[in-house]
């Protein structure tokens, strides 16, 4: 299976370990991820400012993938949502496709509406399949308890994701965690938003939202948080100290990207998965394995 990997803005600069581990694990599982250097902004951050621009930015990326005859595999949930939305709209709405093609034409590009978009984790869940994932596990992580944060755009709005998982009772991440042998930790605020999208508008509220979840996850006795989106990683990783500092709480909740968890279970070394490059170094966790 071969797909174009859409890294987005944040991953290739700030979450290299996510990219590294995803590519590494994908290779092992027979998923070839192709880089397309010309990819630009997915469009998500400007959707609320200028709808048309966002759509065109997304369409440009779809066109780039179509030129190479590839579907898109994403790492960031926000990119997933806007690329999926636009790819579906363009397939369903001919008038919009025509108008978009006209604008793309000015850039010397064309798009005919063929590209499908899927989050990396959804590819693992649906296309590689839980069974194959389970089979790839060589070192079951039964000493780990991991709390998954689904985030928002991986599952919602659900109508663009073919009901592959239910946003009100999500299971896919927990099942993928369980497949590695780790305990999937349930916690009260599992479905809640990280608050990342309003960090620049109202930092206090955004951090309160993240804090509520950090508290819950800690109380639930998890060793780590399983993340699948670089935006959420900003909230729980980069800002974890800040959130704690405000209240004299010291969280020590390593964040792991799902491919890192899976990679560990597959027996890949933590160096190859960039674990120590994560925003919170998972020292205690790694000690548990060795």
């Amino acid at each position: 299976m071969k797909m174009a990997v859409f890294l987005g803005c944040t991953v290739p600069v700030r979450n290299l370990s996510y990219e590294l581990s995803a590519k590494r694990v994908a290779g092992e599982l027979g998923l070839e991820l192709v880089d397309i250097p010309e990819f630009g902004c997915c469009g998500y951050p400007v959707k609320s400012v200028h709808h048309e621009t966002a759509y065109l930015l997304a369409a440009r990326n779809l066109a780039l993938a179509e030129e190479r005859g590839l579907d898109i595999c994403t790492l960031c949930s926000a990119c997933t949502s806007v690329l999926t939305e636009v790819s579906r709209e363009l397939t369903a709405n001919e008038a919009l496709l025509d108008a978009t093609c006209k604008s793309l034409g000015m850039l010397g590009r064309r798009y005919s509406g063929k590209v499908k978009v899927k989050h990396f984790v959804r590819v693992l869940y649906e296309d590689i399949g839980l069974e194959a994932v389970e089979k790839a596990v060589k070192r079951p992580l039964d000493m780990f308890s991991i709390a998954s944060h689904y985030g928002c755009h991986y599952l919602k709005p659900s109508e663009i994701y073919d009901r592959f998982d239910h946003p009100e009772v999500p299971q896919s991440l927990d099942r993928l965690v369980a497949a590695t042998g780790a305990r999937a930790v349930d916690y009260r605020t599992k479905k809640d938003c990280c608050g990342g999208a309003i960090l620049g508008v109202d930092e206090e509220t955004a951090l309160s939202m993240a804090r509520a979840k950090l508290d819950d996850i800690s109380n639930a006795g998890a060793d780590a948080i399983n993340l699948i989106c670089p935006f959420c990683s900003v909230m729980y990783g980069a800002n974890q100290r800040k959130i704690g500092a405000g209240r004299d709480v010291k969280y020590d909740l390593p964040i792991l990207y799902y491919p890192q968890i899976l990679g560990l279970a597959m027996g890949i070394s933590h160096e190859e998965l960039g674990l120590m490059q994560n925003p919170i170094r998972p020292r205690a966790l790694l000690a548990k394995i060795s």
Binding site: E159, R163, D165, H166, P167, E168, Q171, S172, R175
Partner: peptide, 16 residues
């Protein structure tokens, strides 16, 4: 009926 209304998930298989 739109959004995620109107369907459940099978706890065993995860399919809708």
């Amino acid at each position: 009926a739109s959004g995620c209304r109107g369907y459940g998930l099978d706890a065993e298989t995860g399919s809708s």
